[in-house]
């Protein structure tokens, strides 16, 4: 497996890491965080190495790439070592270490130990969990995670996944910032939508809104639900009822009902976010033939305004890169989750 580097005995990690840097003063070992990437699909190990190589161009880290082959009849661990090097400002070569582990056979605690034994001390642990949360996601693991990245749109049962996440967050409290790629995916769309209400005169219409709609691409239902939950949370709507699949009602602060719908299908990631009242409409649309822009539309009794905003159609790896740039506690996502859970019920 050449993408993963050289295979080394697991008991010699420290020695091999030292040898990696010895005698080559032209390279700088840079590290701002520990980045653990976990998958239960062993075939993804090499792909993840390529992804990490891209990520390290902008985010220096010690990468721990772990794949668990739980169905293997064997029970051992294989380790590979490599470094991802990039030119910094065209001058020096900056490198990040990557340790790749293939864990054959499932043994409770082994993955956790693999990660913990190889952390670069005093640096935060960012953990990217690929796929569904299994029993490997347990308290002794997550209590030491600083940032937890996942994609709820890949879960067969997002509600169950979120329940586990919330349980973990409640237990840990101090650290454990959650970062859902399904949520990050909607960032530019939310920015474009938020801009529609920058003028005070448009914000006054919020209390009159009677309907809202969200359209997302195939397989992105969770992203759509997150956007709906966000609109409702920030507008201070209270969840009222689920009318049918993907149709929900809310009540606003003055007791008016708002009917909302979520359409899932098509190729555009986030095709539309809209709100309407009797006299106004606010929408953000992205067309299949113009995926790099959101068309922002405001129509009120006194003005019609059309403008555009960037729409970055990013893949998962690019979204993870954006997450790595982010600081803070991601408080807004935490705020949105209660309504999300009601929508998913």
């Amino acid at each position: 497996m050449t993408e993963l580097g050289i295979e080394v005995p697991i008991e010699s990690i420290a020695k091999e890491l030292k040898a990696l840097w010895a005698g080559n003063s032209s390279r700088t070992n840079a590290c701002m965080m520990n980045l653990a990437v976990f998958t239960e699909n062993p075939e993804h190990l090499e792909d993840n190495s390529q992804v990490i190589s891209e990520l390290t161009k902008d985010h220096s880290c010690r990468a721990l790439s772990v794949a668990l082959d739980r169905h293997s009849s064997e029970s051992d661990t294989t380790l590979w070592l490599t470094a991802h090097c990039n030119m910094s400002n065209g001058k020096k070569t900056v490198c990040c270490e990557q340790l790749s582990f293939l864990l054959k056979g499932y043994k409770p605690g082994r993955m956790r130990n693999t990660v913990f034994a190889n952390l670069n001390s005093d640096l935060p642990l960012v953990f990217w969990w690929q796929g569904e949360l299994t029993e490997v996601f347990e308290p002794q693991l997550y209590t030491l995670i600083d940032r937890f990245i996942f994609d709820s749109s890949t879960w067969p049962e997002p509600k169950k996944g979120y329940e586990k996440i919330m349980e973990a967050a409640a237990e840990v409290q101090k650290r454990f910032t959650i970062q859902d790629i399904a949520w990050k995916r909607s960032y530019n769309a939310r920015m474009a939508f938020a801009a529609l209400f920058d003028e005070p005169i448009h914000r006054k219409e919020l209390v009159n809104i009677s309907s809202a709609s969200v359209k997302v691409g195939k397989g992105l239902e969770t992203t759509g639900l997150l956007i709906l939950a966000w609109m409702a949370t920030q507008s201070e709507w209270e969840f009222h009822s689920k009318n049918s699949k993907n149709a929900y009602s809310f009540k606003n602060t003055v007791g008016n009902l708002i009917h909302t719908t979520l359409d899932v299908g098509g190729s555009v990631c986030i095709a539309e976010i809209g709100m309407k009242s009797d006299s106004a409409s606010f929408s953000v649309e992205c067309r299949a033939d113009e995926r790099h822009v959101f068309h922002q539309k405001i129509k009120t009794q006194t003005c019609i305004r059309n403008s555009t905003s960037p729409a970055l159609d990013l893949d998962t790896n690019e979204l993870v890169a954006m997450q790595l740039s982010r600081g803070g506690k991601n408080a807004l996502l935490s705020k949105v989750i209660p309504i999300l859970m009601k929508l998913m019920a």
């Binding site: 960032y187 939310r190 920015m191 939508f193 938020a194 209400f197 920058d198 005070p200 914000r203 006054k204 919020l206 966000w230 609109m231 920030q234 507008s235 201070e236 991601n330 408080a331 807004l332």
Partner: peptide, 10 residues
Amino acid sequence: MNNPFREDLV
């Protein structure tokens, strides 16, 4: 009244 949709975006 601030724009509620701007929270956390900047």
